[in-house]
Structures are given as C-alpha cells and as structure tokens.
Design a protein around this nucleic acid. Sequence first.
DNA 1: AAGTGGTCTAGACCACCTT
DNA 2: AGGTGGTCTAGACCACTTT
Lengths: 264, 264
Amino acid sequence: MGRSVTNKPPVPASESSGSNRLRPNVPIAVRAANLLRRRLRQEFAHGGRLPSEHEIAVELGISRGTVRQALAILQQEGVITRQQGSGTYANPTVLGIPARIDFAYEFGQLIENSGLRADIQTLEVSTTMADADAARRLSIVDGDPVLLVRKVFLADGQPAIYGHELLPLHLVREAYAAGELEGPIFRFIERRCLTRVDYILSELVPTTASALVASLLDLAEHTPLLQFVEVMYSPRNQPLVLASIYFRDPPIRFHALRKLVPLD
Amino acid sequence: MGRSVTNKPPVPASESSGSNRLRPNVPIAVRAANLLRRRLRQEFAHGGRLPSEHEIAVELGISRGTVRQALAILQQEGVITRQQGSGTYANPTVLGIPARIDFAYEFGQLIENSGLRADIQTLEVSTTMADADAARRLSIVDGDPVLLVRKVFLADGQPAIYGHELLPLHLVREAYAAGELEGPIFRFIERRCLTRVDYILSELVPTTASALVASLLDLAEHTPLLQFVEVMYSPRNQPLVLASIYFRDPPIRFHALRKLVPLD
DNA sequence: AAGTGGTCTAGACCACCTT
DNA sequence: AGGTGGTCTAGACCACTTT
C-alpha cells in the first residue's frame, strides 16, 4: 500500500547543510573511498590499522555495504590490505609510489606526485593529415584531417615527458581557441567533442632516444627510454586520440601493481 | 522466535550434485566472472550485447547483487563496457590483448596467450648471499643466504624472457627438491613457505641489452628492452621474492589499461 | 566469546535509454 | 511505459583471528 519505506540516506556526513554537494552524481561509495584515501595519506602514511567496517559506517552515516564498496576500491588500488578476523591495514609501500602506470592520466599531476614542480610547454598546435597507421588506429580514413598537439612537460624546469597527440578533426563540434589545447586533451574533449575519455589503452614500447627526442628531453642520443603508444577511447568504444609519449627515466619511473586473481 | 529465514543459496547451477565444487572457497561472484569471461572470449570475441543482469541472475540461479559483482570484475578488466539504460557490451579491443601488464603472472601463460608455444629452460638453481640492495628490498640483512633461480622462457623455441629470482632462505620451511624450483616460484612458495604471493610490485626500467642478456635473448647488444625489477609480497605485506626480468620486444609487448577515476 | 572481514540475498529507488 | 544499469540499505550467515 502507498509508498513503502525507503530510507533516503541521511547525507554522507560531510556537509550536512548548505550547498548539498559539489558534483551531484558521484556515488557515496566513491566519495567515501576518496575521503579514506586522503586519511590514509595523512594519518596512515606509515601503516596502521583502520577502523572496522562497522565503525566507518556509523561514522559516515552509511551502510556497511557501501563502506565495503569503498574499501574494495582502495584494496584494488593496493593502498590497503585486509585480513579476515583481524582488520584493515594501510599499505605504506604502495602509498609511497608516485608513478603508478594505471593512474597516469595527467602528466602534470604525475610529475607533482613525485614532489616536483610541473610546467607545460606547448611546442605546436596544428592540423595535419593522418598517415595510414594513425588512420587505422583511429578508425578514420588515410588522409583525414587531424589536430596535432606537441608538448613537453618539465619537472623542476628539467624536461621529463615529451608527447604528441592526434585528434580527428571531425570529432570537434564547436569552435575553439588554440590555447584550449594547451591543457590536458581530455578536458578539451569534454568541452568540445560531446563525449569524454573513458579509458586509455597503451602499448609499452622500449626504445632509445632519437635525435629529436634526445634534444627535447635533454638526453644523449640512444639513451634507453620508455615510450607509450596509446589510444584514448570514449565510453562507446570509439577511438578519440592517438598519442605517443616519451618518458625520461629520471625523473619518471613507472611502477605496476599486479594482484593475483583466483580461478575456479 | 527460533531461527530466522536464511536462504542457503540453491547451489550456483553449475554442478548441483556429485562432488559439490572443486575448490571450496572461490566466491560465486568470481566463478560467475570466470564463466562469463570464457563466454566473452568465445561468443563475444567480436563484440555484442550480453544478457541483462536479471537474465544472468536467473540463468545462474544467483542474485542480481552477485551478478553485478561479477560484472564489476569484468568491467574493471575492461573486457565489458556498460551503458545505463542500454545494456552490457563486450569490448573486442581489450579482449584481443595478449599481454596486459597487470595480468602478467606466469610468464609461460603470457607467451601462450600470444599464441606461441612456451618452454622453460632453467639455467641455475643455487644459494648465494644477498647484496646490500637486495637485502634492503627483501627486508633482510646484507649477506643473508638466498635461493637464486635463473630461467629463460622460450616462445616457439626462440628466447623471449630472461629472469632471475631471489628468495630468502629463511622463508623455506621444508625440504624441497631442486626440480620444484623450475616451475613458477609462487607455486613453490605456496608449497614450501607457509604463505602465498598476494601482489607484485614492479619497477619498469627502460634499458638496453647487456652482453649477458643479449646472448641469452639472442639480441644484438644495446637493443632497447624492458626490464621489470619486482618484489613479490605476502598478504601480510612481507617481501618474499626479488626478481629482475627482461622482456624481448618481439614477441612480448606489454599493454596497460588506464581507466579514469571519478573525483568529488 | 567477541569482533572482524567475506559473501550472498532481497528489495527499493533512481537515472537513463529505447520503444 | 518498460527495460536496463546504478546505488544504497538491511539482514543473515560464514570463516577467521584475537582475547
């Protein structure tokens, strides 16, 4: 009969009144994970046991299921480990890693995570034609026009990352200023392309510095270095950007975390 | 009021009678994910829409929540994409990747995923003393005895991966045969060390082939190649193994998948 | 025995897309 | 309007560790 009992949650205990939330659609579990991650980096940077699921649930005014969802995110990231019967523990080893390969989105951020000051230097913004390989990877036709952006990222003034990005021109739906392309390209896509980057697939190519890359990254020619050849995709699985990125080893050294998955 | 209603689940609809399950402690959600992953690689290798959560739940005789947990695993891996209001879709791009950096556990498996025949050649099994760097990374004392294993992995007869592994001797609790160390080292650890490898933290080091590595991997000296310097950890966060692995680029080229995480 | 994490169920409501 | 995924709650039971 009538409306059944529903339990609109009593607001996640962050800002109970005033402007209810900054972004509306961020799930409580994700916000709780973000909150706990910040606490981990502050209070638990050197390890320690977190409160129990029940205590966190009460503290944040959410259900245990939602707390578990938040903790699952952090466990997946490796920043906590959990022991049945004992508790949830911070993992200082993982918390201390500045460059996780699976979290390398904004390269400026990547540099700052390493404790360095980041500067971006835009070398070129132009339109050109896709070659055969680029066209194939972007699901467009050889010769189609693409936006080309070339950048160097500096860490404490020293060149650290060089990259060039290709964005098919047909994706751009609105007029734009050249300056807009100096920030992260996914911000540009969100603003001007009616879509967003959902995931990035990178090929890890071991290489050595060419004359061009050596001069841009202030390296001796033939110095070993890591290259990403990456394609960025929309939620609908459409290729949006083809990029090629070169990372100078000092200061950027990537880490990967592998967790064993159970089989049946 | 005696026992309340409990709902022992009606057995996951795989093998209802006989030997109930092969491994007892694998969660239904993980088994469902494994089952669906196999179906994806078979029926959905070229894309397509999966049944709805409700249909899967009915088919497998489990609740929608458990189905969602299974699908969350596959979504995290990137092999499916989901669109609210529309459905769950296979992602052929990701399904086709043979060498995901975050799934690189058994290198023999890695080679076979690329469609090649894998062979393992054990070069050396011995005990030695940890140097200062190894001791630090393994949380032991400089000079402590360690097991040393050196191997080459062949792909279709051609050398593809070279690695050496160090395992502190004090972790080994039982007598063992040298042959046991020719398989994957985490199997050895499970059998002989009263613990297991929970996760692996790898440093990605761009390098070029030394004389030794060049000869072992049948490369010209100074050929660019990717090195992993990795530490394997127990669930209690204890370092178990320090390894150094070199991957010849053909045939092994790694891929990384990065998914954007929402902030609040 | 008590506390902790691990799993699963059931149900409600919402947001979104398709028809 | 109906179906689909997205989120959250509540409760039950289990397995494990600690006291």
